[in-house]
Design a binder for these strands. Sequence first.
DNA 1: TTGAAAGCGCTAACAC
DNA 2: GTGTTAGCGCTTTCAA
Lengths: 335, 335
Amino acid sequence: MITLKQLAEQLNVSVSTVSKALNDSSEISEETIARVKELAQHHNYQPNRIAQSLQKNATKTIGVIIPNILNRFFAKVLVGIEKEANRLGYNIITCITNETLNKEKESLKLLSNGSVDGFILAASEETQVSSEYGHIETLQKNDFPVVMFDRVLDTINCDKVVIDDSDAMKRATDHLIAKDKKNIAFISNIDDLNVGKSRKQAFKETILKKFKTVDESLILTISRKENSQDKIKWFFKSNPKIDGVVSADNTSGTIALNVANDLGYKIPSELSVIGFADEAISNLSVPRLSYISQNAKQIGINAINLLVERLNSKEEEKEFITKVVPFKIKNQESI
Amino acid sequence: MITLKQLAEQLNVSVSTVSKALNDSSEISEETIARVKELAQHHNYQPNRIAQSLQKNATKTIGVIIPNILNRFFAKVLVGIEKEANRLGYNIITCITNETLNKEKESLKLLSNGSVDGFILAASEETQVSSEYGHIETLQKNDFPVVMFDRVLDTINCDKVVIDDSDAMKRATDHLIAKDKKNIAFISNIDDLNVGKSRKQAFKETILKKFKTVDESLILTISRKENSQDKIKWFFKSNPKIDGVVSADNTSGTIALNVANDLGYKIPSELSVIGFADEAISNLSVPRLSYISQNAKQIGINAINLLVERLNSKEEEKEFITKVVPFKIKNQESI
DNA sequence: TTGAAAGCGCTAACAC
DNA sequence: GTGTTAGCGCTTTCAA
C-alpha cells in the first residue's frame, strides 16, 4: 500500500498538498490536482482507513450482534444490513452470540474499544431470560448508539425495529378461523424466547375471543433438545381432532405439514397449516406452506438507516423511535 | 472512552509509564503498576484498537467474503470462522457478494485499504464462470494473505480448504447402488456452479462404472428461476421408473422426498433419497433425509487457522497447502 | 497556491 | 524507574 508521504516525495510536493489535491480542495491549482491524481491512480492509491479512522474518531464500521446466523430470519436481516451499510459507506463486523449472554457481553466489550461507531443488536435468548442488560447500558453511557431489532428489550431506551408480532399471529389465526377450523393447534420451538411467548399469547387471545375457551392440550412447545418431527408426529396422533396448525417459528410449520401429509390428512380440507416462514421455506413442504413473512431484509435496512441517522446527528437530542415493519401473509396450498 | 493520556494526567506520570505499566513491563515498579492498573480498571480503560492497529500496522481483523449467507453451508462456515477467529483474537468483517463478480471486486478493494490483515474467500458464481481473477491476484500482489474455501479457483495459488466433493458424491451414489437401486436420478439446482458440475460429473462416472451407461433423462437440473417443487413433481411423473435420487444441493433432496411421499412412493423400498444436507435439514422431510454432511464449521475453523498461521509467519516463504476436510454420511429413514 | 506543524491514541527506542 | 521523543497515515489549521 502506497502512502500519502510516498506520493508527496515522488511529486516533490508536501504531504498536505497531496491530501488536499486528492480531496479536490479549492486551495490547490487545477494543474497540481491533475498531477497528483494521475500518480495516485497509477499507484492505485487508497487512503489508509485506519489512519482516517483515528483522525476522524470514526471508523465507518458497525458492530452487528446476532444470536444465530443459522436462523434464516437473522441471516436475512444481516443481508439487508450488509447491503444497505455498504451503500451508506459502512462496513459491518458481525458477532454471533450463539444465544448466550456471555458471548454477547464479550462481543460488545471487544468492539467498544474503538472498533465500531455503533451497534445493531438482537438480544440473545439468555439475555432475555436473565434480564441482565448492564452491558447494553454501559454501551450507551459510553455514547455508542444502539439499534435493537426483533429481540428487543423493553427496558432499554434506544431506536428499535420490530414487526407487530402479535398482530401477525392474530391475523394468521384468524385466517384459519375464517376457513371454519374448529380445533386449531399452536406449535412452537421458540417458547423460551420473548417473541415465542408473545406469539403464543396472541394465539391464545385470538382463540379465546372466538371460541371463549383455549384448549391447552392443543398447544405444543418443543425444546431445543427434542426432535421436532417425532414430537409433532406424536402430537397429531394424540390429538386427532386437530384441523388447523399455527406455527410460531420457521420450521415447525414445514414439519407439521409433511408429517400430516404422511399421516394421510387431506390438506387443506382436513387440516390447514400456517407459519412464520418465507418463500424458500414454503417450498420445502408438500403442499406448500402458507406463511407470514417478516420482511427480514427490510428490518435490516431500517436498522442500519436508523443507526446511521443517529450517528450523523450525534449532538442533537432526538427522541428514540420504534419502527414497526409491516408483515405479509402469503396464501398457498396449505390453507 | 478514556485514553492513556488522560490516565497519565490523573496519575501525574507520563503516557509511556502508563502504557508500560498496563503491559506489565519489568521496567516499572510494582507500586506504580498497581496504581496505574487500579485507575485503569476504575475507568474501565480499554486500549483504542484503531490506534494500536495504526501503530502495529495490523488490524487483527479478517475480511470474509461469502457468496450467499442464506445458504446454510456458508452460514455454518461463517459460524466456524467467527468462533475460531474470536478465540484467536481476531474480528471478522463479512461481505456478501450475492454471487456477483462486481460485489466481490468491490468488497476486496474496499477492505484492502488497511481495514483487514487478510482474507477468507469463497468465489462467487459469476467469478467462477467469468474466470476473471485479477482482483484476487491484485490482493496477493499487495501482500494480503488469502485463504479460499469450497468455491476454490484452481488458477489462484493460495491456501485452500475443500472437501472431496467427487468422492462424497461417489459414496452417496454407491450407497444407493448397494441398496440395489437400478434407476438412480440426479437432481441439482446448482448446475451453474463448479461444485454442482463436479458433483454431476462424479455421479455420472459412478453410474457409468456400475451400469455401463448413463441415462441422461434421469438427470434433472433446476435453474434459479424455476420452482423446484413443481419441476421435481413433474420429473417423478415423467420418469416413474426412478427408484433412487441423489441430490447435489441442500434443498432438492428434501423436496424430492416430500414430493415422492406425497405421490405415494414407499420409501425407502420403492425409492431412496440422499443429498447434501445436515441434521436440521434432514428433519424437514418425512421420512428423514439421509445426507452427506460437509463439516462446514470445520471448514471455517481450518480456513481461519491457515490464515492466521500465514499472518504469523509472513516473512517465511511457506508452501501453500490445500486442506481436505473429511465429509460424513448419515443414514436415516430415506435409504 | 503551497507547506509546516499539530494531533488522533498508541508503542517503543532511547535518555535521564 | 520514569520520561522524552518519534512515528504509524491521515486531516486540518495556520503561516508563508
